[in-house]
Design a binder for these strands. Structure first.
Length: 228
DNA sequence: GCCCAGGTGGGTA
DNA sequence: TACCCACATGGG
């Protein structure tokens, strides 16, 4: 039993205790989640919400509607999310891809996970994090999403990651946790919440509740108080 | 005014 | 392969 095997569930419990359930994308339409996954790239969620509201108001939060609109029209609607020219292009690429499935997301469920992920990565504007966000949050697939907060938190704790790539970090979580979409969903959201709450700049934040996990070893983890 | 946000694609060495 | 940079609004 590696150190990570017991620590990852432990970290989850601590985060859940500290922050409570995050309810990311609960009961949303899968397509809306996909759009959100693209629009939130390097962007605060509050700005994404405005863009999604604009799309909704324009009746454009559907694949067919987005295909009908011009690139410029889509750009205007998603302006508040920043990088709006390139994001409009990305949304266009996404709905073009969905068109091959007749916009029926249920057809996606028939595809194998590795194959579906490869396809998503082939869509302009969909990188690893966005692909996995779509797979997990929109399509309910048990894939762990890695983002900047996750990497930073893992590094601070001192968990072993090899290689230090997206796949490396992802393997760390997926090796030591059961393949449960609900768990991965909540775990990732908690890591983001934790990253937002703790200091972003200092490599080792003395106020971080999880830091004690690495510095004092597992034996003292249970005794260590959660300091937030 | 300054910093940052739930990244990605393209260019260069 | 490994960096670097453009992309851009809105809130603290």
């Amino acid at each position: 039993m590696s150190r990570e095997s017991s620590l990852l569930p432990e970290i989850y419990d601590r985060l859940l205790q500290a922050y409570g359930p995050q309810h990311w994308w609960p009961a949303e339409e899968p397509f809306e989640v996909m759009v959100g996954a693209v629009l939130t790239q390097s962007t605060a969620w509050t700005n994404v919400e405005k863009a999604i509201d604009s799309l909704k108001s324009a009746g454009a939060l559907e694949p067919a509607a987005l295909r009908r609109l011009s690139l410029h029209e889509v750009a205007v609607l998603v302006r508040s999310s920043g990088f709006y020219h390139v994001k409009a292009r990305k949304l266009k690429a996404l709905v073009e891809w969905l068109g091959a499935y007749r916009d029926d997301l249920r057809r996606l469920r028939d595809r194998g996970l590795p194959e579906l992920r490869r396809e998503l990565l082939g869509v302009y504007g969909v990188g690893e994090e966005t692909a996995d966000s779509i797979l997990l949050y929109a399509l309910d697939r048990p894939v762990f999403v890695i983002d900047a907060y996750t990497r930073r938190t893992v590094d601070r704790i001192g968990l072993a990651v090899e290689p230090k790539s997206y796949a490396g970090y992802q393997a760390l979580f997926m090796r030591h946790l059961p393949p449960d979409a609900r768990l991965f969903n909540e775990y990732h959201a908690l890591l983001v919440q934790h990253g937002k709450t703790t200091c972003r700049k200092v490599p080792r934040c003395p106020e971080c509740c999880l830091l004690k996990v690495c510095h004092y070893g597992q034996a003292t983890v249970k005794a260590a108080r959660v300091v937030l």
